[in-house]
Amino acid sequence: MTHPQSQTFTSQSTAIVIFDIDGVVRDVAGSYRRAIADTVEHFTNGVHRPSGVEIDQLKSEGFWNNDWEASQEIVYRYFERQGQTRMQVDLNYDALIAFFQSRYQGTDPEHWTGYICTEPLLIQSSSLERLTAAGISWGFFSGAPRREALYALTTRLGLVNPVLIAMEDAPGKPDPTGLLATIEQLGQRHNLELNTPVLYAGDTVADMYTIQKAKTLYPKRTWIGVGILPPHVQAIPERCEAYQQTLQSAGAAVVLSHVEQLTPERIQQLVLQG
């Protein structure tokens, strides 16, 4: 079987699809989001453990893609509700990161045993192979640290040398620098035409804002935001509908319940709709 990353594209590629990872490639409700809740609980002295709804509400603001920063922000807001200013809160960011990572990766940085090891995958390599066969170029842009992103892509999915822009490589979303860098790497690797249409599949407001900012910078190119509903919002219909509306309001051209619904046929349809 031809590996999905081994085919050579030509300038005739019909589209570029870039995937976010968390909530799109892997389900992080029981990992990253659980680590956020653990971290907030720890740094509020066991008093406040944020619900999934509270975390989603923060993420819907569009500026908290980094989960360390999101954890810190929830801690600050908790103490503000208790009448304290942020200057009064004794919160060491490095200590917060260390605690978060001890939950997410585990206590041994070389041999992970934390929540990351239990994340369900939301896409199979066969879906990427179908994109390759249809002449669609693909890569990944994620706010996750590179090692954690590659754990999902190479260790779990079995991809070989995928195009990936991660936390260390670009400013955080919604800054579009990382998205543009992913496109540039794909263009160089596969000899793509300059204005090949771009789709970005993500599960957060920040993802949709990112592609809207790219569209502002390069309006002659076709930019399509594809919202993906993360599994944790789909159990309750009202919450699912509200999350879908939030992504649409942030600029999603379409919102799908599963990333594998983004088939070559659906991609072509979206590109034609422009």
Rank of each mutant, 00 (worst) to 15 (best):
I55L: 09
H48T: 04
V25M: 05
E61M: 11
P50D: 14
D20P: 04
R34Y: 11
S51M: 06
Q5N: 13
A35Q: 08
G30V: 06
F43G: 02
V24H: 13
E54L: 07
D22G: 14
K59D: 14
N66T: 04
Q7V: 05
Q5P: 01
W64L: 13
A15F: 12
S71E: 04
N66K: 04
V53R: 15
P50A: 07
V53I: 14
I18N: 03
D27L: 01
T8W: 01
D27V: 04
F43Y: 11
R34I: 04
V28D: 04
A37L: 01
D38E: 15
R49E: 02
I36L: 14
D38N: 10
E41A: 04
D22H: 04
D20S: 11
N65C: 01
A35P: 06
D38G: 01
S51T: 15
Y32T: 08
Q72I: 10
F43E: 07
Q72V: 14
G62I: 01
W68C: 02
T44A: 03
E73M: 08
F63H: 10
V53P: 01
A35E: 06
S31M: 02
H42V: 03
R34K: 14
G46H: 13
R26Q: 11
I55A: 01
S13Q: 01
T44K: 14
Q12D: 15
Q57P: 00
E54C: 00
E69R: 10
K59Q: 15
I16P: 03
D67M: 07
A70C: 09
I21H: 10
G46R: 07
N66R: 06
I74N: 03
N45D: 09
R33Q: 13
